[in-house]
Amino acid sequence: MRRETEAFLDLVRDAEDPTRADEARVQRALRAAIAAGVAPSVEPSLEIDGSPEGTYFGDALARLGLSGAKLNLLAVCAAASLATGDTTLPIGAHVLGEMRTTTPAVAAAPLDPGAAEPSAPEFDAEPVAPPFEPEAPMLAPSTSTPSTQPPGRAKPRARAAAAPAAPVAASSLRAELELLQRVQAALKRGEASTALRALDAHRTTDTTLLAERRAARILALCQLGQIDDARRAAADFVKQHPESLQRAAVEGSCANR
C-alpha cells in the first residue's frame, strides 16, 4: 500500500472513537433492554453478502433471528446457564487479562489456574477501554424500573475534551474476584458460615461484583438453613439486580421455595 495511504489511515484510525458518554449511554440502554427482555432489533442473517461465511456462528444467529419477537432474555439465559454445566466462560481469565494490561506486576499470579487460566493471552492484545462511571456499573443495583428507563436512542454526542478516564481499580477487582472464589470454594465444601464471614469481612465500595456477592450470601444463608433471611435477601436481590444472571441461581435457591 502506498505510503500516502498509510499516513492517511494513521490519521483517521482513531478519529471516531466513542466518547465515555457514548459508552455510558449505550451501557444504560443495554442494561434497560436486558432488564425489559428486549430482543435485538436486527435479525442477523446466516450469510454475509450472500456467501456462507462465519458458519461457526451461523446456526446460533439463525436461531436468534428466527426467534423474532420479544423473548424473555432472562429466562432464556437462565435456562441456558442451568442446562449447560460445562460452558463456564473463562471470565476470571478475562478479568485477569484485563488487569494484566493495567497492572502487570499485581496480576501475574493466577487466582485459580484450574478455573481461570485458559485464553487469557488474547485479552492482552487490545487496550482496555475506559471503565464505566463508578456510579453506573453494569451490575450495580438499579434504582429505576426498566419501564421508566427505555433504551436510550439519543444521537451520539460530540466527543468530550479528552478527560482522563478513571483507571480501573484492578486491585479492587482482583480482591473482589478472590473473595468470590473463596466464598464459592467454601460453599462447595459446605462451609457456609466461613463463606458468610468472608462476605461480612469484605469492605469495598466497588459494585462491579455486588450482585455476585449478594447472590453468594443468599446461597450461604440457604446452606445454613436461614430460609427467612435468604428470602428477604432474595426479594431485595430481584429488585436491585433484575438483569443479573445470578437471578437464576437466586431463584433456584431455598429462597424461592
Binding site: T88, L89, I91, M138, V168, L245
Partner: peptide, 21 residues
C-alpha cells in the same frame, strides 16, 4: 448452582468494557 455464581454476569460487563470502543 453454586458454580454459577461469579462467571457469567461478569462476562457482559467485562466484554462490554473491553470491546465497546
Amino acid at each position: 448452582a453454586v458454580a454459577e455464581v461469579l462467571p457469567r454476569p461478569l462476562a457482559l460487563d467485562g466484554v462490554y468494557r473491553e470491546h465497546f470502543k
